[in-house]
Measured scan of single mutants.
Amino acid sequence: VPQRAWTVEQLRSEQLPKKDIIKFLQEHGSDSFLAEHKLLGNIKNVAKTANKDHLVTAYNHLFETKRFK
């Protein structure tokens, strides 16, 4: 089981690129989880459509539901 890579403050910070969060989610989330949160596909394309709040919610949801690969 992966550990949380970032704190809530870090997740919301401008310093953390959306692409980093997407990469983490794609590496650790199950396909059904990723599909549900519309996070499947090319990281660049996902970054265009997903806002930061959406990614933070998905990140927290992944750990709450433990839907890891």
Rank of each mutant, 00 (worst) to 15 (best):
L39F: 03
W6Q: 03
W6E: 04
R12V: 12
F33N: 00
A5W: 12
I21C: 02
S13L: 02
V1F: 12
Q3S: 11
F68C: 03
Y59I: 03
N45S: 14
P2C: 10
V1T: 12
K48Y: 13
E36H: 09
T7M: 03
Q3R: 09
R67K: 09
L11W: 02
V56C: 06
L34F: 01
A47D: 09
F68S: 02
D31Q: 12
H28M: 07
N51S: 14
A47F: 08
T7D: 12
K48V: 11
G41M: 04
E14A: 15
H61K: 10
K44S: 14
L11C: 03
Q3H: 14
F63V: 02
E36S: 08
E9L: 04
G41Y: 03
K69W: 06
F68E: 02
K44G: 14
N42Y: 13
V46K: 04
L16S: 03
T49M: 14
L11N: 01
K48M: 15
L39W: 01
V1N: 12
K18T: 12
A47I: 14
A35R: 09
L40S: 10
D31G: 11
F24A: 05
Y59R: 01
W6L: 03
P2F: 04
Q15P: 05
N51A: 10
G29I: 01
S30W: 03
T65A: 12
A47P: 02
S30G: 06
V46F: 04
L55M: 04
V1D: 12
R4W: 09
Q3G: 06
P17W: 04
G29R: 00
F63Y: 09
P17F: 10
T65S: 13
S30Y: 02
A58E: 01
K44I: 12
H28S: 08
E27T: 09
K69G: 07
L16G: 01
N60E: 15
D31T: 13
I21F: 02
L25I: 07
H28P: 01
K66V: 05
L39M: 07
V56H: 03
I22G: 00
L11S: 02
N42G: 10
Q3I: 13
I43S: 07
E27C: 08
I22C: 02
N42V: 10
L25A: 00
H28A: 10
R67T: 07
N42A: 13
I21S: 01
E27M: 10
S13Y: 04
L25P: 00
